[in-house]
Nucleic acid binder design. Structure first.
Lengths: 232, 232
DNA sequence: TCAATGGTTCGGTGGGGACCGAAGCATCAT
DNA sequence: ATGATGCTTCGGTCCCCACCGAACCATTGA
């Protein structure tokens, strides 16, 4: 009886068109802002806020506040699995993310920029992905990474000033920072800043005017390919 | 867009407490009369009739008229799987305190039950674990298993009807089904059904009246020990 | 044929919840 | 400071739908 009630409660949450629309968007596995989800569902922000709070309360969603924004994502692979199995019943296929629309506006800023003192945008994500893919970085806690021994070697070879980075004991060493354009975490903290410094020192990237936008140089593109296996 | 609407419609159907109660009863894989389902859900016959018609229209249920009675059953294993995956979410949400309270009332259900047409609960997990541990079953893709050559031998020795199982080419042969009480996959699909049939045929387990709960016989316990190396 | 039983259709009622306007807080920008 | 932006809370309206009473149809058994 209790399990039946729980079943109906979960299903009822997914059964509202607005909430289903949000969940469907979140099926891309990334985090989206509350206003993004509201706009996509065709409802006002205050209505969406209520929906998101209810789904968060039911552990369907996880939330993370960053600045003025509040990012929501699916709470677990099990949630995605349940949604997918419901979609299978309807004979519908999972919708891949259509990001072409968002890509058009301000492409340079989305490509590469600073996030305070570290790299963000597609380049920041590419660097982070490369480090994790090669086993240089592994998760430590919910919002941090830790550098593996191979990661230390890699950074030394690259010329990243790890000693200075480690002296800033008051700040996180390898922090996850959520990227607002890519909606995925990139590396920040002392290590992220040290990596960005390396990019500047070696002439791989340079700041534009007085903006956060960065220009990736030709040698920078080559470096991204050779050191990080990224084609940008 | 259309796929989102379809998702919300299916979920909304499962989101009503009365309908969820009916679906939960039908999870035993058998057919039940409309009045049976109505009584179980605690609603009048005419209300239940409306619910059943809607779920039938949405292809969640299949119906068969026999005399004055009308029997309803789940339309497909996919429906059962979707319900099971929602139950997994609901079970995860429950706090340990209330969870144990709910399960203390029905420990047998958690121990052994049918999930549509195959074994679930601790016994279902034990069988599945044994098969993988002995190398009879190995992962194939994200949600399937495949039977190894030693697995075929093992099934033959056990008396599992593999030929019939293979003839059901429209359904998955060895599917992973997430168990809501154990939170781990057990084996479903045609092979899962064939294994469950073997348990019934050899008198290792028997259905309890009007429920998904199974009783494991003494010989069943011995068989679990000798064939599957499980102490239950 | 006439009851008895199982199931469905119809009409009216009531409650829950989805929705938005307005207002209140935060954070970021200039 | 001042405004702009993102998110939330509060209050009130409105609509959908679950529910039941009553009547109707179909099958069975006498």
């Amino acid at each position: 009886m209790t399990t039946v009630n729980a079943l109906s409660e979960i299903a009822a949450l997914m059964g509202d068109p607005a909430r289903a629309s949000m969940l469907s968007l979140l099926m891309d596995g990334r985090a989206h802002t509350a206003s993004d989800l509201a706009h996509n569902a065709g409802i006002t922000a205050q209505t969406a806020s209520g929906h998101l709070a209810r789904m968060f309360e039911a552990d369907l969603l996880a939330a993370r506040a960053q600045g003025r924004n509040r990012f929501y994502r699916l709470a677990s692979p099990e949630v995605a699995h349940a949604i997918e199995s419901l979609m299978a019943l309807a004979g519908a296929r999972a919708t891949p993310a259509s990001k072409s629309a968002a890509w058009r506006r301000d492409p340079d800023l989305r490509f590469c920029r600073t996030c305070y003192d570290h790299l963000a945008g597609q380049v920041g994500i590419a660097v982070t992905d490369s480090l994790t893919r090669q086993g240089h970085l592994e998760p430590r806690g919910p919002r941090d990474w830790q550098l593996t021994s191979s990661g230390e070697l890699f950074c030394d070879k690259l010329g990243v000033d790890l000693d200075t980075a480690r002296q800033a004991s008051s700040r996180h060493f390898a922090r996850q920072c959520l990227d607002w354009s890519e909606r995925r975490p990139h590396i920040s903290g002392a290590l992220g800043a040290a990596i960005a410094d390396t990019f500047f020192k070696r002439g791989w990237a340079e700041r534009l005017r007085r903006s956060r936008t960065l220009r990736v140089t030709d040698s920078g593109r080559r470096a991204l390919g050779s050191h990080f296996g990224a084609t940008v």
